[in-house]
Write a protein that binds this DNA or RNA. Structure first.
Lengths: 233, 233
DNA sequence: ATAAAACCGTGTTATAGAGCACAAAAATAC
DNA sequence: GTATTTTTGTGCTCTATAACACGGTTTTAT
């Protein structure tokens, strides 16, 4: 069911697909420069304050980008799915990471030195536009998120997170179960609330038959209602 | 004291300065395509949901980018000072505005059709990198802001806003007074709190001699203490 | 297999900050 | 110059949600 191992050629294929803008020479250049790194569940990929050196591409697995705030509370900023790029923003901004990243699940990451990427961006406009588009999308999401997290109430925020997880990682074959199994704490950190409130609100949702919970497995039953709750806040 | 009128040539100069990457031909192209628009105090520049058509460059004045959330509450996302570009994110992301923009003060804005900009970005890599850098910086700020607004307490958020305004618009000649005069409501919308709490917290700061208030004039007296309050939340 | 640690669930309490209501002052309109 | 609207300031109440405590359960380590 789950692919146990990814061959080198499959990786190159994924990347080649993403790097469609590149010409033959540039692809070769890239193929010579990337390395593969595997991360265990919960393993940290990079930390806040570190200097970015590589463009990261999630080949396989699930990753969270988060930020530790005041009083040990952590906020999940975004989540990464295969095959998405991350870890490059800080480099382009000319600073260090303001976020940290860790693996939700065992993950395989392709790493490309940022200088190599920068060189390619300089000579390939389509690639530059790829980054412009991606950054623009992420910035829009971030702006939306700021308002949602600050203004919506707990139920709205949790409903939003559940829908967000569905959009990000999809559902299992049954068409209902979220295909990511998060701890209550991660769910809380995604929704800007305490763990207890995540637990409570989640069971409320279950009582109201909006979802069904079985440990970390969450089935979305009444998605329309969840959308409504998310919308009105 | 305040420049009453800006000549056409001054505008072209400002823009030429920002568009350093461009060659002679490209500058000419640009000079043929821009238009100037003036906005009154509090006038809306663009609205959420509208389709972006122009790159906007604030020549003169002060602008807020904000988002209306649930229950009529508004959140100021970022502020623009001369000579900064804005209004282009949504175009690059391929969607409509998710924010709105309005003038804090009478403002002069240079508008360049996005198709013209896109064309230039396609043929000029340095320009593309300019946008990549700007978007990367803004995304970093937005991520920081998300956590600050959600996790810090009122005093921390307000202190942060005051420092943020100083960084954005600077101080007057006395070296203390913020050179932007905001309503308490705007201050509240910047800091994610109600107007009453902005008023209250502001007078607390004044009582504690961290600031001095005279109507909308705010003098930063003990900046170090403000920084500390902002940091610890 | 057993111990230790991490996670889940629930009840209880405490409080930061929202949500009024209302008066005074200032800005704007007429 | 007077009227009207907007902004500022203050006091009071109420509630959403954090904070804490504790017992049961599951996972992980040895």
């Amino acid at each position: 069911m789950v692919k146990k191992d990814i061959t080198e050629s499959e990786i190159i294929e994924s990347i080649a697909d993403m790097w469609r803008p590149l010409n033959e020479e540039q692809r070769k250049f890239l193929a010579q420069h990337f390395t593969i790194q595997r991360y265990k569940k919960n393993e940290t990929i990079y930390c806040e304050g570190e200097t970015p050196t590589h463009l990261l591409c999630l080949i396989n697995g699930k990753v969270k980008v988060y930020k530790d705030g005041v009083g040990g509370r952590s906020q999940i900023i975004r989540v990464i799915k295969p095959v998405e790029y991350f870890g490059y923003r800080a480099y382009f901004a000319g600073g260090n990471f303001v976020t940290a990243a860790a693996a939700f699940e065992p993950s395989t990451i392709c790493m490309i030195p940022m200088d190599a990427v920068y060189k390619l961006v300089q000579e390939n406009n389509e690639l530059a536009l790829f980054f412009i588009k991606q950054l623009s999308i992420d910035l829009g999401i971030s702006d939306e998120r700021t308002v949602n997290l600050t203004q919506k109430h707990i139920r709205g925020r949790l409903a939003e997170s559940l829908l967000f997880l569905k959009d990000s990682y999809g559902l299992e074959e049954d068409g209902f179960t979220l295909s990511i199994y998060l701890s209550r704490e991660d769910l809380a950190n995604l929704s800007n609330m305490t763990t207890s409130n995540a637990i409570r609100t989640l069971s409320n949702f279950a009582t109201e038959k909006l979802i069904a919970i079985d440990g970390r497995k969450i089935k979305l039953i009444d998605e329309e209602k969840l959308k409504k709750i998310s919308k009105i806040g």
